[in-house]
């Protein structure tokens, strides 16, 4: 009986502490990787192309771009042909990396400070961070992290604009779905639009 109660107590203790451990791990994951990503943009010894390549490597590891690319086209992920999906995902990946690089460039070299986290489910957490900008203003950034069998990856990022949380992938999805609905689900129309936006972003890159 004594052994059984010890095991039960240990199990109860584990169950009680599990969420806290998951939080700490997720927070550590965001802290380490977000800082690595921002530092990759702040290496003066790298050329612009080298910087983009390093940033992209970190982002590929940090974020689940495959899942995001499917999320933002919702039901059309099942309707595109394999060939369309391949071309779309290539276009999206290039675009997403360009967007993130442009957006995060304002915070290069700054420190990401974890303020706390919330578990939506044991595998779905949101980590709340602030990033000091060089102009002294702190930006609140929330990272949605999924735990895929011990592997953490970011699937969405929210910016707090005057109390208005803007989730980038969700906003993207609303627009991509509207474009696809309007064009009878044309993968080509979406790919053309994405490539146009990427070209514009790349022309503005420092």
């Amino acid at each position: 009986m004594k052994v059984r109660s010890v095991i039960l107590s240990a199990a109860a203790l584990l169950a009680a502490t599990a969420p806290a451990m998951a939080d700490a791990k997720t927070e550590q994951f965001v802290k380490q990787n977000a800082n690595e990503v921002l530092n990759s943009l702040n290496n003066p010894s790298l050329s612009a192309d080298e910087r983009t390549a390093l940033f992209s490597d970190y982002m590929e590891e940090f974020a689940d771009l495959n899942a995001v690319s499917k999320f933002v086209i919702g039901k059309y992920a099942r309707r595109f042909t394999d060939e369309e999906m391949k071309r779309y995902q290539h276009a999206f990946r290039t675009y997403a990396l360009a967007v993130y690089e442009n957006e995060l460039d304002a915070y290069r070299g700054e420190e990401v400070v974890v303020q706390g986290s919330t578990d939506r489910t044991p595998r779905d957490s949101i980590v709340d961070t602030t990033i000091e900008r060089s102009d002294g203003k702190a930006m609140s950034v929330r990272w949605r992290v999924l735990d895929r069998g011990g592997e953490y990856q970011v699937v969405d990022v929210a910016l707090d604009i005057d109390g208005n949380l803007i989730w980038l992938a969700i906003e993207q999805q609303a627009q991509f779905l509207a474009l696809l609905d309007r064009t009878n689900g044309s993968a080509q129309a979406l790919i053309d639009k994405i490539n146009g936006m990427t070209a514009k972003l790349e022309s503005e890159r420092r």
């Binding site: 899942a67 999320f71 489910t121 779905d124 949605r144 699937v155 949380l165 969700i170």
Partner: peptide, 12 residues
Amino acid sequence: DPYKDLPDFDDF
């Protein structure tokens, strides 16, 4: 409760 309406990525 800002996260209550977030769509589920787990179905991906």
